[in-house]
């Protein structure tokens, strides 16, 4: 547990010192979302229809942009080698770093999402499920993304590669995330979709730290 809190505290401190990084991700989220009305026209009914999907897609892209931050710095300055060599339980380290990533990017995205949904005329009933779905979905996004971020360490063109590897794996989260919003707007309970999202999160929580640890181990070999 002490390893977990130590790594978490350290990553949070670093993120706080470079808070511009988190802000950039949030700004990207806002700008990308605002592009859609220009693309499809300002008609409220059209925007309301696609609002949930747009917020989810742009949130995924924003999270993707921030993923390389999880390990790249530690990989380049040798902290990662040390962590592996000292025999620290790597899945625990990974989990701590993912939690830090989620707190510094996922949470800001969730907080700003209702503001962006307003600009897209999301129906009133949709706000609760939007935030709940993001709350349950973004941890999965960070967890799955961490595997990809660890795999592309030390590659050329890592960022583009990462999106090719990870975006297909985000499709289930996207499907159930938008379905939860859509269900409530059309008057159906979002409960089942949110349950599935929670299930994805539990599954990612149990599998991703091990896969990420394996990827990190081969990266520093």
């Amino acid at each position: 547990m002490s390893v977990f809190t130590a790594v978490l505290a350290r990553d949070l401190r670093l993120a706080l010192r470079q808070s511009a990084d988190s802000l950039t991700v949030v700004a990207f989220f806002a700008i990308a979302t605002v592009l859609f009305p220009f693309g499809v026209g300002p008609e409220a009914s059209v925007l309301a229809r696609i609002a949930g999907g747009v917020v989810w897609v742009t949130a995924l892209l924003a999270a993707l942009l921030s993923l390389d931050r999880i390990f790249t710095v530690d990989y380049e300055d040798g902290t990662l080698d040390q962590l592996v060599l000292t025999g620290a339980p790597l899945p625990v380290v990974v989990l701590a770093k993912v939690v830090a990533h989620w707190l510094t990017t996922g949470v800001p995205l969730i907080i700003i999402s209702p503001v962006l949904a307003v600009t897209l005329h999301l129906p009133a009933a949709g706000y609760g499920p939007l935030m709940l779905a993001l709350l349950l979905g973004t941890p999965t996004v960070s967890l799955v993304g961490a595997v990809g971020a660890a795999l592309v360490l030390g590659t050329r063109r890592g960022g583009v590669l990462l999106s090719l590897l990870i975006l297909p794996l985000y499709i289930p989260v996207l499907i159930f995330g938008t379905a939860a919003i859509e269900a409530t707007v059309t008057g159906v309970s979002a409960g089942p979709m949110l349950t599935v999202l929670a299930g994805f999160m539990v599954l990612a929580l149990t599998l991703s730290p091990w896969a990420t640890a394996a990827a990190l181990r081969q990266a520093v070999e």
Partner: peptide, 15 residues
């Protein structure tokens, strides 16, 4: 793409 992205081919294999 991933198998191809490393200078060291052995790393690409494992990744």
């Amino acid at each position: 793409a991933l198998g191809d992205a490393f200078e060291d081919s052995e790393r690409g294999d494992k990744a």
